[in-house]
Simulated scan of single mutants.
Amino acid sequence: MSDCLVVGGGIIGLSLAYELSRRGMSVTLVEQGEWGGQASSAAAGMLAPLKEFTAPGPMLDLGMESLALYPEWAAELEELTGGDVQLSLDGLLTVALNEEEVQQLADKYRWQKEAGHAVHWLSNTAQVKEIEPLLTDQVQAAIYSPYEGHINNRMLLRALATACQLQGVKLLSGCVVSGIAVKGGKVIGVETSSGSLRAAQTVISSGAWVGGMMEMLGVSVPIRPVRGQIAAVSSVGIPLRTVIFGTTGYITPKKDGKIVLGATEDESGFQRDVTMAGLASILQGTMPYVPALHSATFLEAWGGLRPATQDGKPLLGPVPGWEGLSIAGGHFRNGILLSPVTAKAMADFVEKGETERLLPFLPARFL
């Protein structure tokens, strides 16, 4: 019997298992497929809360807190595992190509600056292209955020899986959960294809599959899959310096010789396939920003299922009426960004019962 059983081995489940094990707890981590094989490995690894969240509030606060945790967190993982997670917090550009976009961007810059965030307004083409020369001459203005960036999410997932193993987490991949075990009104673990697993606390962190897991108890949770399609091209001959966000797409130069382009959002149920329409949308949405992309060598495209909630906020914390059961899911496009802060806040709950940091995100708001 473990202190905690975590169901779902994506970025959130791996991060939580790692954090709990660092605190001396015995942890079992269950994943029906491969570690990070769903949305986590299909992400672009963006660490950009000022771009992702369009207004002040709990989501932006959570994102900024998590971003601040990343340097130390990544360094710890690299030291423990000997792996490189390719963390890059060298800044990013959010750009405008026409007057309407300039006005929208100026409004965003205004509230971000008033809130005390480290952002800079670039008011003309020359200023923007000084930071990123490969941008189109059509660019009119931009917000430059010098402390945001990205990480290689696939390398991060490998490092987390290795770290969990080194910390003594019991790792069960290819293990399908068939039922949630309840005794005397308390959740005591799960039934799986590998047998019965028991724990004092059970956390469901299975991404877009959280809803299906909770249906085993007759509990309806408003998490649905939203497909995101992403592509990658070679950076050979395209010395892009900076992450670029536009209204129709983003362009992310990686340290492994790829430029990641994204991304679509479409309601496709649990279908992950890349479609021609999706690929066309990605290319049409990104090439106008960097003309050099027209000659880039295409490498790959992939899809992932992002776990979305009705109000855009994750579900973090205990499930009302079910002692011993909690959820850590519904992070939509921001699982990579929010993984360190989610792990710490959820570990505080599992270890000490603390819910103060979780208040805006408690599942009780829906249940």
Rank of each mutant, 00 (worst) to 15 (best):
H331T: 05
E265Y: 08
A141C: 10
P71R: 12
G91Q: 11
V219L: 00
R306P: 00
L293A: 01
G246T: 13
D348H: 03
Y144W: 14
E101G: 04
S21W: 03
L171M: 12
M25R: 15
S220L: 03
A126H: 10
Q86K: 14
L69Q: 08
G353W: 01
T94C: 14
T275P: 03
L92K: 11
K113M: 05
P58I: 00
R306I: 01
T242S: 14
T136F: 07
A96N: 11
G24Q: 10
D273E: 15
I251A: 02
L134W: 09
T136E: 03
I143H: 09
G335V: 03
G116F: 01
L166V: 09
A163F: 01
S206Y: 00
W35I: 08
L283E: 04
E52F: 08
V243D: 09
T242P: 05
S173C: 07
Q86R: 15
E215G: 11
A231E: 04
L305D: 00
Q310E: 04
T162S: 14
P133A: 09
V95S: 10
T125F: 03
K113H: 11
T309H: 01
E65R: 13
T247R: 13
Y109E: 12
P146S: 11
L87G: 10
L279R: 08
I188Q: 05
E76D: 15
Q167F: 04
G45C: 11
Y147E: 14
L47I: 10
A200I: 04
S26Q: 14
W322A: 06
G184R: 10
G335Y: 01
A17T: 05
A43E: 02
F245Y: 15
T54W: 13
